[in-house]
């Protein structure tokens, strides 16, 4: 605490609040959080799949909230409810679609380079948590799918011992996990993932240093 931070906001650190503000601004400077420029190499359609997955998740949440407003049986008895259920299903399919293409892209870019491993890890955990969230969604539809999927899945989950605490045949428990606990977990993971992306920046191309020079390339000037 005796060291002067790079941002020169040491004077604000006499209170806890000032300390928190200074540390937050040091960790996530606003120009990193909401950038209006990108490194020149961020120029490929593969970069749009992160934001597409994010916005699909927003649509998943909004359509899910509408279903939550009306309660779990609404979509079974109302054609409007069934339409909102369709929105929920297709936004989930889009969410996974974009997330998987995003994952492939980041893998082939080796996007974990430059101390960005935690970004990859939070993304991978988000993918796994999303699978769990979608799975519980199937369990709370109150239809044939729910009956079949829950009675099949119980054997796998029981075999790990988890089934003794997390009962896929208990509609009430699964409904609360699906509408509260798991979406909260996925949301927190996504926020962490995006904050990590924004603070460390988009990974440079393979074989390019931070000044933009390409290793071993014929001497071309890299500066703008």
């Amino acid at each position: 605490m005796s060291q002067t931070p790079a941002s020169g906001r040491a004077g604000e650190r006499s209170t806890w609040t000032g300390w928190l503000r200074a540390h937050t601004l040091d960790a996530i400077p606003p120009e990193h959080l909401l950038p209006d420029t990108q490194p020149a190499y961020v120029a490929s359609w593969i970069y749009v799949f992160g934001v597409l997955a994010l916005t699909a998740f927003v649509v998943v949440c909004v359509s899910g909230l509408v279903i939550a407003l009306k309660g779990p049986t609404w979509w079974q008895v109302s054609s409007r409810g069934h339409f909102v259920n369709s929105l929920h299903l297709w936004s989930v399919e889009l969410f996974f679609f974009f997330m998987v293409v995003h994952l492939w892209g980041k893998f082939f870019m080796a996007a974990w380079r430059g101390r960005r491993a935690l970004t990859w890890m939070t993304g991978a955990v988000t993918f796994l948590a999303s699978i769990g969230t979608a799975f519980t969604g199937y369990l709370v539809q109150q239809n044939f799918d729910s009956q079949w999927i829950s009675t099949q899945a119980k054997d796998g989950i029981n075999a790990t011992g988890i089934g003794a605490f997390w009962n896929v045949l208990d509609f009430g428990q699964m409904l609360l996990w699906h509408v509260a606990l798991l979406p909260l977990a996925v949301s927190v993971l996504i926020v962490l993932h995006i904050l990590l992306v924004r603070t460390s920046g988009v990974v440079p191309p393979i074989g390019v240093d931070l000044d933009g020079r390409v290793e071993g390339a014929a001497a071309k000037e890299a500066a703008p």
Partner: peptide
């Protein structure tokens, strides 16, 4: 169809030119 479409979209994302290469 979903899996094939994912592969096609992935390939398109790699191959299609990205508009606006303006630098500053």
């Amino acid at each position: 169809a979903v899996i094939v479409l994912m592969l096609v979209v992935f390939a398109l994302a790699l191959f299609l030119p990205f508009p606006g290469g303006r630098k500053r």
